[in-house]
Amino acid sequence: MLGLLLSWSKPNLPAVSSFATNVDTIYAFIFWVSVICFIAIVGTMTYFVFKYRRKSENDKTPYIEGHTPTEVGISIGLFVLVMGLFYWGWVEYMHSRTSPMNPYEINVVGQQWSWNFQYANGKRTQRNIHIPVNTPIRLIMTSSDVLHSFYVPALRLKQDVVPGTYQYLAFSANTPGEYDIFCAEFCGLDHSAMLGKLVVMEAEEFADWQDDMGKYAKTAAAGGTQASGKSLIEQGRDLYSSKTCSACHSDDGTPRVGPSFKDLFGKTEELTDGATITVDETYIRDSIVDPNKQVVKGFVAGTMPTFKGQLNDDELNALVAFIKSLSK
């Protein structure tokens, strides 16, 4: 019995990040609290059923209306317990939501029914994402059609991807290996086939893999991966010229019709409606596809045409990466 309970007390999964280990600890704690509460309730109930089983129709029972101190005591005790539980879960959650310094960033695009990954050097993969071990990773994620959810059980992490917005996941994996990726938000016919692997590699091996070097030299054409030859930032710079962004937005601080991209990313701006925003990936993306939604004070709404439909998610990601690279 105890063996069975022990086997139920934490996930039977590899835990390859500190967040995963901590989630397991909280899980185990709640599990044992639950076991105690369950035994207290159901054990008492079972005891009463045997002890006070009806013996005759004339059984005498006492008249008990209740006991207010018990009710109050239980309420206060439970309040303390659940607030403690909240706090523990909240601390870990907020920790997982905080991006590390200088993370290695990978763009993720979900689509019916595969995961697509874009790396800094321009390399792309489908289904499988490769990352270096013990390195802070930040995923910049979106969807090109409906909701999906990027779920890696080994990391205990999950995040819905929402078309039209960027969502983020930050983590660092501590053990090389291959771990399952699932789509966890129902997305239509082949939802359950939208699978992949998180491939955690030693740093040197990852470098070889990313640059198609060493033992990965020949796999570029074969294994579903493709190298474009240009880094994400270079692709973004090409789009910056070819889509004529440069006509209105300088990359060196020179004032033109629109704000310069130099040192734009991460800046706090006041909008025409008085609100303030911090320029992040989502803001840049919004400003390309829906330029009049949030206009910075001093600029005129209606000046910039929308680029909605003219840039796909990969191109938007490249432009965002380029604009980010102009801020240091």
């Binding site: 709640i30 639950s34 309730i41 159901v42 879960g89 909240w90 959650y93």
Partner: peptide, 30 residues
């Protein structure tokens, strides 16, 4: 009624796992 007490207690207690933010990130939609 006894079955209710047994099962609902489990239903309620497993709600604690899901109300706890960090744990729900793992368990949500599973």
């Amino acid at each position: 009624a006894l079955a209710f007490l047994f099962l609902f207690t489990i239903g309620g207690l497993t709600g604690l796992f899901l109300a706890t933010l960090a744990v729900d990130v793992h368990l949500h939609d599973t």
